[in-house]
Measured scan of single mutants.
Amino acid sequence: MGFKLLSKLLVYLTASIMAIASPLAFSVDSSGEYPTVSEIPVGEVRLYQIADGVWSHIATQSFDGAVYPSNGLIVRDGDELLLIDTAWGAKNTAALLAEIEKQIGLPVTRAVSTHFHDDRVGGVDVLRAAGVATYASPSTRRLAEVEGNEIPTHSLEGLSSSGDAVRFGPVELFYPGAAHSTDNLIVYVPSASVLYGGCAIYELSRTSAGNVADADLAEWPTSIERIQQHYPEAQFVIPGHGLPGGLDLLKHTTNVVKAHTNRSVVE
């Protein structure tokens, strides 16, 4: 069995187990497998329904001669939608809004960016022009300005110390501490036991640490421990890039980060 097929099978099995364990909360999309990078042309966006009122959005972007996937989250909030992270750029984010209108038909009224990198804030200006209120932590807003990236308009308070959590509509926002970046936030959907790890969490097929220019490698494993301790009931975990899975993604990420750190020390 090929690795790609095995990865998709694991996603399907995880979703099936969740649907059985929580039949009222989960209505997993039966329309197909989780979209992969090879299936999404740059400039297009796919939506994948995880649970009743919960979707991931998947886009792709060219970077350094390669094409990478990027995940975000959409959560229903009454007759409105909360968006977590842009679709990595203005063109993708405009396509995301169009796809949401086509498939869901509810307005996106608020959006949260989970850290300051372009795959999370690139497209904020498109959201703002569409009347979406954009939010991020003060740290993310400051770092985005320093980096020359787009800056969300509103500040999220109460997320300055490791372990801080605040309720934001249908989700809980959690600051686990520094990891992929010093400002990275985690998003949890309690009604569906869905954990969105953003770039602080890796997919299972990833074996290298990737972009760690703004990471705190020493603190990252401790931050992941905080996530595990705060959300032990999480059933569906979405990484910032690639295929979702279960809580095993947290341990896998820790292993990859520690291996990278150990290699760096040896070198």
Rank of each mutant, 00 (worst) to 15 (best):
Y48W: 09
S113M: 15
K91F: 13
R110L: 11
P239Y: 00
F236M: 10
G2S: 12
I58A: 10
G43H: 12
G245W: 02
P221A: 08
I186S: 06
L10M: 09
G78H: 06
I74T: 09
A133Q: 14
V194F: 00
A192H: 07
P244R: 04
P190A: 06
V121R: 03
I17K: 05
S137G: 12
H260R: 08
Y12R: 13
A192W: 06
V67Q: 09
A51Q: 15
L96N: 00
E150I: 05
S161C: 11
L13I: 07
V171G: 02
E145M: 11
Y34E: 12
V108K: 03
K8G: 09
G148W: 07
N184W: 01
H57T: 06
D79K: 14
I201C: 02
A95D: 11
L249P: 01
S264L: 10
L5V: 06
W88C: 00
Q61L: 09
G43D: 13
L13C: 09
M1T: 04
V54M: 15
F236S: 13
A98F: 05
V171T: 08
S31T: 12
T109V: 13
A51L: 13
A66I: 14
A165S: 11
G72Q: 01
R46T: 07
A218Y: 07
D52C: 04
G65E: 10
L47M: 15
A165P: 08
S70M: 11
A66D: 09
I186Y: 03
G43M: 08
G89Y: 04
P69G: 10
I84Q: 00
E233Q: 13
T222G: 12
L81N: 01
S139Y: 11
D216P: 04
S27I: 10
V11Q: 11
Q61I: 14
E172S: 10
A130Q: 15
A90Q: 08
R142I: 14
G131R: 08
T134S: 11
T207N: 15
W55E: 01
E267R: 11
T14G: 04
A59Y: 04
T114H: 00
E147G: 10
S70C: 04
K4R: 05
T182H: 05
N92A: 11
H230S: 08
V237H: 01
G148K: 11
D52R: 08
M18S: 06
T36C: 07
V108D: 01
V121L: 05
G105E: 15
A51C: 07
V212R: 09
L156W: 02
V171R: 02
F26D: 14
F174K: 00
P244D: 02
S139T: 14
A200E: 02
A66M: 15
K102L: 14
H252S: 08
V45F: 03
S62H: 15
V126Q: 14
G242Q: 01
T114I: 00
T261Q: 07
G210S: 05
A130C: 07
A200S: 06
H241F: 00
S208I: 13
G169T: 03
I20T: 12
E44W: 11
D125A: 09
N184L: 01
L195H: 02
G43T: 07
F174N: 01
P138H: 08
N71R: 01
V75S: 03
A98V: 09
G78R: 10
N71P: 01
A87Q: 00
V266Y: 05
D118F: 06
S181I: 00
K8F: 05
K258N: 06
Y68Q: 12
W220I: 00
E33W: 11
S38A: 12
D125M: 12
L156M: 11
G198A: 05
L127W: 02
G177Y: 00
T140H: 03
S191K: 09
N255W: 10
C199P: 01
A98W: 11
L47R: 02
Q103V: 12
